[in-house]
Write a protein that binds this DNA or RNA. Structure first.
Lengths: 352, 352
DNA sequence: CCAGGATTTGCATAGGTATGCATAGGGCGC
DNA sequence: GCGCCCTATGCATACCTATGCAAATCCTGG
């Protein structure tokens, strides 16, 4: 019963079976095209009979739209990204677009990758990798392909981006830690070349200055678990042990807590407060119960898809730099200030 | 300086610039084609000058190969899957193939999804979703598209699959718990329709029978955090509290530990042992330190890609059902037997 | 019953590349 | 120096669908 797929069924086959022209078949699958209901019915019957499916590639060749969006990602072990991916893919599928996924090895050159992206005639590109050189963005734009940077910005004011409130969030974290009575703060940087890290550090420093606290100790965790663990060890072995660490993302904060607890026997938050950024799923796990500034997934993805669709309609659209507000979600990994708590969407949050 | 993308550069443009025919350009990009080095050089120069990139879609139209592999996934919040995705995508990119990602909402019908998959003329499909109906697999095969089931099997002996050692692993877990002196075992099922769950349950029961222990209590966690939390509450509130729970995957085991510790004040493993399956990254986090049976990612993905490539070369290839062996990775979430420990790739493992 | 407008239909072509075939060119041996 | 063979090249066509245009059909109102 293993019937060989003799030859793929084409629109011409369907046309012959339905006794109409190939054009009629095409129009049946083109929304808004002019087809008589009777013809349409005949066509659909033949389609069902033969198991025909339009060839999206051939269609793209003519229309110049592939309905494919390239998504470039790295760090998929940081839960934030798969969550973004799932949401993004879902939203795009809803709008009849597909996701062509490119995973960038962390240190790898982006050139061959860009080549592949361009060859597939993607309609747009979402760059959701903090590390990739912004050359990629520039080249895409040069080729006339709309680009949206996700969770990342670049100096080029001509490229659209969607980010969380890195500056404001980090500043609020500083205020929160100051209000909680911490005096010796530390900052664990992620990847030093990333814009998220730059903004979060800048915001944190600004908040610290405002609170009149001394400059924080600084270590680098490279946005990886291993890097964060090592950075934590360095920090806690040093002469001036901090009483609070702000890690540039949740992923690192988790490693930080693990090391503090199990390698140094510290209690969190009694001996050491740890705060993260992103509010990934694991931050709510009771084993970590992480206080963190949220990057609201759905609004961020909606802004991305919205920008994308607008750019597809009109490539001349001026670029947007959307900054999606978040909240400081208070859990149990940092000592609490006396007041300032509110409830937001069922979670306890803090505002200065 | 915003140069409008006047018109995409085609091979004909390059040919004109290089003073050769369009065929020569095409052959320059076709490995093994007959082109004189001098011609090739002229072409490449023009290519660079104009910024030409071959149109992969047009190429696919002729060759009948798109070099696109559809990957259908769900449950991206279970860390196992993004890890698989990253590895799979990397391996396929190495072999010049691209990943078209389809995320299946957990309960959704697979038909419109299948339609999209087929329209894009993908060369092959990887089904990595425990929930999706096997109708999808059947239909793909009917259309002559190679399918590999990942972490899942089906009754149809004609479709290839790659899984971990669900039966053997679960059986070993039972033996491990028995050797550790547990007497009242419980099993937390995942999605009851999935083959992984079926096999893990079957293996667990077999191991229990072999050890001469009574049948385990059974709850269902649906492979979700919320489901697992509720199942754990039901289990621990019940009359006969178990002294060990085998959760059908790590994702659920984590929720289980959280509830046991924080809602019931139990100590893990002193009051309750918890064992998972998969050995995801989070299992090694010190906050959970989960004992679990590993599904080795790289071998599984390699087997998948290997099968895929072979099927692409020869669609008549007989189907394979690869079962990748794993190890019982011993950490701190379950009471330990007296002996049976070994070291395997730097991790402590247990063999009966 | 007819004219005229609106709607539907088919024809032909385009979109960018790969490839079979025939031809042109080059090198080598005798 | 000639012939032969092998390599390199160009021409023409095919892949499958969408769409402008002209022709055909239908419907409506007078």
């Amino acid at each position: 019963m293993r019937r060989l797929p003799s030859r793929p069924i084409t629109a011409t086959d369907v046309a012959r079976a339905a006794g109409v022209s190939q054009s009629a078949v095409s129009r049946t699958f083109t929304p808004g095209a002019s087809v008589a209901p009777a013809t349409r019915a005949k066509v659909l019957e033949a389609v069902k009979l033969l198991g025909y499916r339009p060839n999206a590639l051939a269609r793209s060749l003519i229309t110049g739209r592939s309905r494919i969006v390239a998504v470039v990602m790295a760090y998929l072990d940081n839960q934030f990204y798969p969550d973004v991916l799932e949401e993004l893919s879902g939203r795009l599928q809803e709008r009849d677009h597909q996701v062509l996924l490119f995973t960038a090895k962390n240190g790898s050159a982006s050139d061959p990758l860009l080549d592949q992206v361009m060859r597939y005639q993607v309609d747009a590109v979402v760059l959701a990798s903090t590390t990739l050189s912004s050359a990629l963005a520039r080249e895409c734009r040069a080729a006339g392909v709309p680009v949206v940077l996700f969770n990342r910005t670049t100096d080029d004011p001509d490229v659209s981006s969607v980010t969380g409130d890195n500056l404001g969030g980090a500043e609020r974290i500083a205020a929160f830690l100051a209000a909680g009575g911490h005096r010796a703060l530390a900052f664990m940087a992620g990847s030093e070349t990333s814009s998220t890290n730059r903004d979060r550090e800048r915001g944190f420093l600004r908040g610290i200055a405002r609170a009149g606290l001394p400059k924080p100790t600084r270590v680098v965790g490279h946005y990886t678990l291993a890097g964060a663990a090592e950075a934590t060890r360095a920090l806690l072995s040093g002469p001036a042990r901090p009483d609070a660490i702000f890690c540039a993302n949740d992923h690192m904060a988790i490693a930080c807590i693990d090391v503090a607890r199990h390698a140094f026997g510290l209690r969190v938050p009694e001996d050491l407060s740890v705060v993260g950024f992103d509010d990934v799923g694991a931050a709510a796990w009771r084993g970590y119960d992480l206080t963190t500034f949220s990057q609201p997934l759905q609004p961020m993805v909606e802004a991305t898809v919205g920008t994308l669709m607008d750019l597809l309609e009109n490539p001349e659209e001026p670029p947007r730099a959307a900054v999606i507000k978040g909240e400081l979600v208070v859990r149990g990994s940092a000592r609490l200030p006396a007041g300032g708590f509110t409830t937001h969407e069922g979670r306890r949050v803090w505002r200065p």
